[in-house]
């Protein structure tokens, strides 16, 4: 984790839309940060701060108006398999079984059948869905559907995993389980992750680095590393609460969040 090879870099990235009545709305302005190899980077901020827009630009689903995003030094111009994305809403393909869903990306990329089967089985096992390999998504719970999406993306071996509030729609208990599952996946797969969330606890638990985005227009307010974890990942969520330094960092971020919210209320 201390390896300092820059995987992803954002250099002065901005995004503006033309809103109703031709008014130009600046969603994101001058966002710069770097994500290193094998790092779990969290984009955190109040809702509506444009953090999802940043993630979509990293995916190549939207173009920045200004600035450049680079993956391994190459400018990001369009979506491709290098940057697989897990969405907040369920994206399992209803017409495919769990196994076929996980194989889907590899099939697009013409991975030979035998290798496909093997990799799919491995990642289905990793997200603990082996019993449901032949089930259709309608038989799965919300948490299971997200596990399918994660396995499908990882099985496609992206060099960067993008997640847009992937656990936002899940109930609290399922969310913990998924967060702990992510930690064990990070330990066993050596993936670089950029995840968007507005859940401070989640950011502290999963993130090696937290990039706090402010509101209106979204820009990097603070770029923090979760040093209190001492370079290791906590495996169980309740254990994090007693790690020295955790409470201070959470309080610090909560204050940032509150300031942003207060500014927002002033506008209204």
């Amino acid at each position: 984790m201390s390896a300092s090879v820059v995987k992803l870099s954002a250099e002065g990235v901005g995004k503006s839309f033309v809103g109703t009545g031709g008014r130009v709305i600046q969603a994101v302005r001058d966002v710069s940060f770097a994500v290193h190899e094998n790092e779990f980077c969290v984009l955190l901020g109040p809702s509506g701060c444009g953090k999802s827009t940043v993630l979509r630009m990293i995916a190549g689903l939207e173009d920045p108006t200004t600035g450049v995003l680079r993956l391994d030094g190459h400018e990001i111009l369009r979506p491709d398999r290098e940057r697989g994305m897990v969405f907040q809403s369920y994206t399992s393909f209803d017409w495919l079984t769990v196994g076929q869903n996980v194989e889907y990306g590899m099939k697009l990329n013409r991975v030979p059948v035998a290798e496909r089967r093997e990799r799919a089985a491995h990642f289905i096992d990793l997200v603990k869905l082996t019993r449901f390999r032949d089930a259709y998504p309608k038989q799965l719970s919300g948490g299971m559907k997200q596990r399918v999406a994660i396995a499908r993306t990882l099985a496609n071996s992206p060099s960067l995993l993008l997640m847009d509030e992937p656990f936002g729609a899940l109930d609290a208990e399922t969310r913990w389980n998924m967060q702990e599952l992510m930690v064990s996946i990070m330990d066993s797969t050596q993936t670089t992750v950029v995840m968007v969330t507005h859940d401070i606890e989640e950011a502290l638990f999963l993130g090696d680095r937290i990039v706090f985005i402010s509101r209106h227009p979204g820009t990097v307010l603070e770029d923090m590393t979760t040093d209190f974890k001492g370079g290791t990942r906590v495996r169980r969520k309740e254990d994090m609460l007693t790690v020295p330094g955790y409470a201070e960092m959470e309080r610090h971020i909560m204050r940032l969040m509150r300031e942003q919210g207060a500014e927002h209320e002033d506008e209204g």
């Binding site: 995916a59 190549g60 979506p79 994305m85 994206t91 697009l108 999406a149 496609n156």
Partner: peptide, 23 residues
Amino acid sequence: VRLELIETSLTLGGNRWQVLWTV
């Protein structure tokens, strides 16, 4: 058809034709 389904396929490496036929 939900945009997320199409975008999922795009970020898994699907080209225009593949997205049309497989999603």
